[in-house]
Design a protein around this nucleic acid. Structure first.
Lengths: 231, 231, 231, 231
DNA sequence: TATGAATGAGGGTTCATTCAT
DNA sequence: CATGAATGAACCCTCATTCAT
């Protein structure tokens, strides 16, 4: 017990250092990208010497990979948890769009730029890792779309790959726009509009009217039912 | 007269040198991105000494800017010339999609990556220039969409900005995908599918459909509100 | 009494720690040489933290010196004990050759390399210590040779220093050869052959032979002189 | 012709720089060994910036390899040229010993130490190259000894490898001794003594008397002949 | 005593850029 | 005009050593 008490704070301190370093690194890499960022900047921002950075991370590259994977773990984990609990592919799409815009516009815009900038084939140092992270991140929604497509709830004449490009490409561009112009758009309104726009593209054309009508009828029935119960 | 005779070929030669250097620089920057590319590589590929590069371009940055603006001049010029000659906004969209994919997948994918990678806020050296180029590049189609929207040929309930994000974001993502996975998709088929998808999103919905959609969104919002209050 | 009881095991433990550290250090320095070896490697191999190394040894250099002197103590001590008990200089030479080859080829080849590599003037950190060790190590045999020379049992026309170079130089080269080529020669056969070879060089020549040899050398010198004058 | 005139001095200048750098590097590596030497020291001694060193040599290692191979080229080339022109294996041995001692004691003692210190298995950066150089360097004499052995002029009951160890090991030790004690022995006297010592070991035992007698008789005959001709 | 943690002092290497010829 | 040559300014990374706990 006494050894535990002694060991724990030490470990805790070490863990805290790592967390501080990762936070600093996230900030620095976000702001400057992988190449322009220097380990000296990370060290300074974390308030330690440069050598200390290398006590905890084998290299600049490893540090950056940790930053990226941590970030993706956060946002992917949330998606994997929440998406299955939502009913209907429209709600799922809506959720993803809102979350994506919120997350990235809030604190991660730099990370987004980092990932977009370094995730290319000509940046072999990080590309592989980033690709894997992104695969994981897009998978939950893609699964939902695949199932919905199989059920005929969205159009079936398009490769899934293209739907992904539509969804994530649009959002990325919105983000990219807000980054380059330094303007923050109204997130919720934009999210709703974007969801609407994408949904229009996803829906089976002739079925859209039908679906909406069915929806209105169901809501009407539910409403009547509720009123009757209340009375 | 004699000076002219001398000057002209010299100028011509000089112009040719510049062209050679720009061609080399385009190749090098495409392959490696701005930061990883070295002036030595450009010089070697152009078959001149490193110092010669700096006789014609003040810095690596200026050289890269020239490469980027030249490239955008080409593709923007074409769009500005061709788009107005097409009848109907669908044809214009279709044209843009095909051209964009063709151009970038054919020889410019590296340039695309370059632009995407360096066009961020964290790359202050090139971001400004790239932004301006891209503004010009997207303008022709945006003008067409604006007119079509005014004429009621496409939906009017979306900000133009979002339509641009949808169009160019989707395409960018397709390209990005092909770059990272090193797979070349069937260009024409993809172009057609993508046009179709985007067009579905752009088309105006008839009044009843719109009313129903509005209704659904309102119900959805109210539901979220109620749930939030409950929790 | 109680302090003694406490002190003794502590001292014993401390001694054991030191022994463990020295064993680890010997292994590490043997394998990598002084410069390439790191204190971290020593600590890891000893199963302690890096800081602990410096609790027992003031510096990397001191640690290495201890390793070297310990090793020389072992092999020098043995020689000092055993050599005087052997009858005849030939037996003594034979013993030294065999022991030297055995010791160094068996476990100490790395230490041999260490000593050879760092025992130079350009390695001021260890050279002095190594020189002293080697002086002590070669002394027993040198004493034997000196006495034998005085008794006329081996040739008397050579400085003792040169005989030492002959004996230890040959052996060193054999070892060096086995190290660089990663081949272990048959130790005993090699030892016998080498002893034979060296012995041939050490044996006194009879008077007529010596006179003849001197004659030949003088003629040779005169000839060289004449040739030089002519050229 | 005019281009040649222009090109030549430029090339010459470059060649001279390389020579200067190699000279500086030889001095620095000789004095400090490979690891302790720094590229900054080389640059300073050559009177250039550190970056210039890397304009001409890809790395510290390559620079050192060049230094070593150049040096071996010098001394190996001389041996390969001169040895075959000498009559008799004794003269050849004598020549090698004198040359080796002269060369190494004169300017190369540091290089000798360098080669001995870094030519070990635990210095993988240079060991391979050094081994190859030394193979070449010892080959000429080894060939002579092999032939002499085949002709029965030296003893045949020893592996050639061991003879090489005897010859070069002895000399190395002489050098090593002079380096560590900072004393320069009388080179010519030492060379003759060492030759004598080694020769004693090489000669077929029972044949030695015979050979010397034959030599004396031949010289006597030649002398009489010469005297007769003169008279 | 043992160690987790931190770091100062370099070391090798890269590269855009300058300048005399 | 073209270039051979040179370099300043960084940058990433290593490691022996110190010190509070």
């Amino acid at each position: 017990m006494s050894t535990l008490q002694r060991t724990t704070p030490r470990r805790a301190k070490s863990q805290q250092r790592i967390a501080e370093l990762l936070a600093a690194a996230r900030a620095v890499f976000s702001e400057h990208g992988f190449q322009r960022a220097t380990t000296a900047q990370v060290a300074e921002m974390a308030g330690v010497s440069e050598a200390t950075v290398f006590t905890y991370f084998a290299s600049k590259r490893e540090l950056c990979i940790q930053v990226i994977t941590d970030w993706y773990d956060e946002i992917s984990g949330e998606l994997e948890r929440e998406l299955p609990r939502l009913n209907g592919v429209h709600a799922q799409l809506s959720y993803v769009v809102r979350q994506h815009l919120c997350t990235l516009l809030a604190d991660g815009s730099g990370l987004c730029a980092l990932v977009l900038g370094e995730g290319r084939a000509n940046a072999p140092e990080l590309a592989e890792v980033i690709l894997a992270c992104q695969r994981r991140y897009t998978t939950p929604l893609m699964d939902c779309l695949a199932k919905a497509s199989a059920r005929g709830e969205i159009r079936q004449d398009m490769p899934l790959r293209l739907l992904r490009d539509l969804v994530y490409g649009s959002m990325e561009h919105v983000l990219w726009d807000s980054i380059t112009t330094h303007k923050r758009p109204p997130i919720h309104e934009t999210a709703e509009q974007l969801t609407d726009l994408i949904w229009s593209a996803l829906m089976p054309r002739d079925a859209s009217l039908e679906a909406l009508t069915r929806f209105r009828n169901e809501v009407g029935a539910a409403l009547r039912h509720a009123n009757a119960a209340q009375a």
